[in-house]
Amino acid sequence: MVTLNSFVVLGAVIFCIGLFGALSRRNAVGILMSIEIMLNAVNITLVAFASALVHDAKLGGRLTGQVFAIFIITVAAAEAAVALAMIIAIYRRRNTIDVGEIHLMRW
């Protein structure tokens, strides 16, 4: 039997895997891929709650979670485009995308 808990735990596990990647990677494209994994985990959680609460009359039976997932997908696509353009611009100027070596603003 698959309940809401199964999907929320799945989302949490995938989110933490993505967070580990975002924290431990040095390649900027690798960090971006980990962030995409985290956004997908959040989407899974939101859609799971939408399906679980759609039969709840108190909340009007609306699919608000799915609408939020659509907005997250929109913003994630925009973020991916801008971030990859930034990575390519940094690579042209400094010839590396290792985030350990991009430390112009480090104190």
Binding site: V2, T3, L4, N5, F7, A12, A52, H55
Partner: peptide, 18 residues
């Protein structure tokens, strides 16, 4: 997640949500 009220919701209201 295991100790929240939503866990009750998933057990009763929408037992098999798929």
């Amino acid at each position: 997640v295991g100790s929240s009220k939503m866990a009750l919701l998933s057990a009763n209201a929408s037992a098999n949500m798929t």
